Simulated assay, not measured.
Amino acid sequence: MFAELFILMYAAHLAADYPLQTDHQAGCKAAHGAAGWRANLAHAATHFAAVAVMLGVGALVLGLTIPVLPALLALVWIAGTHSVIDRRWPVARWMAFARQAGWAQHGGAAHVDQTAHVLALVVAALFLAAV
């Protein structure tokens, strides 16, 4: 069940991060102040909704049994971690700690960002597969 859950959640993640993310969200989600937080939380809510839809599709089409409370916890985890990662400071701090300043200046931050999101999805899929 882990593989099915992960693939569904990863597909939802890609949809929410690319075709469903507005230019405003992409440009402002890490900004300081209320406008940045509004853009960030709207983007996180898109992830919550996209993953919820995909889990529902998985339940209907694949016959996956996904208990409601664990599903809600996984959705909150995904939206919450996505929100924090997209504030950009966690990625910047990781890259500084890992001595990746050169890679950060040449597009590496986007890769570290996506890796962090995928790891959060792995945790959610493991959790749902275990319950």
Rank of each mutant, 00 (worst) to 15 (best):
residue 31 A to C: 13
residue 31 A to H: 13
residue 32 H to W: 11
residue 32 H to F: 11
residue 33 G to H: 02
residue 33 G to N: 09
residue 33 G to C: 08
residue 35 A to Q: 14
residue 35 A to G: 02
residue 35 A to H: 03
residue 37 W to V: 14
residue 37 W to Y: 11
residue 38 R to F: 12
residue 39 A to C: 14
residue 39 A to V: 14
residue 39 A to T: 12
residue 40 N to Y: 05
residue 42 A to W: 01
residue 42 A to R: 10
residue 43 H to L: 10
residue 43 H to F: 11
residue 43 H to N: 07
residue 44 A to I: 07
residue 44 A to C: 06
residue 44 A to P: 02
residue 45 A to K: 01
residue 45 A to P: 07
residue 45 A to T: 08
residue 45 A to D: 05
residue 46 T to L: 07
residue 46 T to P: 04
residue 46 T to Q: 03
residue 47 H to G: 15
residue 48 F to H: 07
residue 48 F to D: 01
residue 49 A to C: 11
residue 49 A to G: 11
residue 49 A to I: 15
residue 49 A to K: 10
residue 49 A to D: 00
residue 49 A to N: 03
residue 50 A to C: 07
residue 51 V to E: 02
residue 51 V to I: 15
residue 52 A to N: 00
residue 53 V to C: 08
residue 53 V to Y: 02
residue 54 M to H: 13
residue 54 M to F: 15
residue 55 L to R: 09
residue 56 G to K: 09
residue 56 G to D: 01
residue 56 G to I: 12
residue 58 G to T: 10
residue 58 G to F: 12
residue 59 A to T: 15
residue 59 A to M: 15
residue 59 A to H: 08
residue 59 A to F: 05
residue 60 L to S: 13
residue 61 V to N: 08
residue 61 V to A: 14
residue 61 V to P: 00
residue 61 V to G: 03
residue 62 L to P: 05
residue 62 L to Y: 14
residue 63 G to E: 02
residue 64 L to Q: 06
residue 64 L to G: 01
residue 64 L to E: 01
residue 65 T to P: 02
residue 66 I to Y: 03
residue 66 I to K: 02
residue 66 I to S: 08
residue 67 P to M: 10
residue 67 P to C: 09
residue 68 V to K: 11
residue 68 V to Q: 14
residue 68 V to E: 13
residue 68 V to M: 13
residue 69 L to W: 15
residue 70 P to D: 13
residue 70 P to R: 04
residue 70 P to Q: 13
residue 70 P to V: 08
residue 70 P to T: 12
residue 71 A to I: 05
residue 71 A to G: 10
residue 72 L to I: 15
residue 72 L to N: 08
residue 73 L to P: 00
residue 75 L to P: 09
residue 75 L to N: 09
residue 75 L to G: 06
residue 75 L to A: 03
residue 77 W to C: 05
residue 77 W to R: 03
residue 78 I to H: 05
residue 78 I to A: 09
residue 78 I to E: 09
residue 79 A to G: 06
residue 79 A to M: 01
residue 80 G to D: 03
residue 80 G to E: 03
residue 81 T to Q: 11
residue 81 T to M: 14
residue 81 T to V: 12
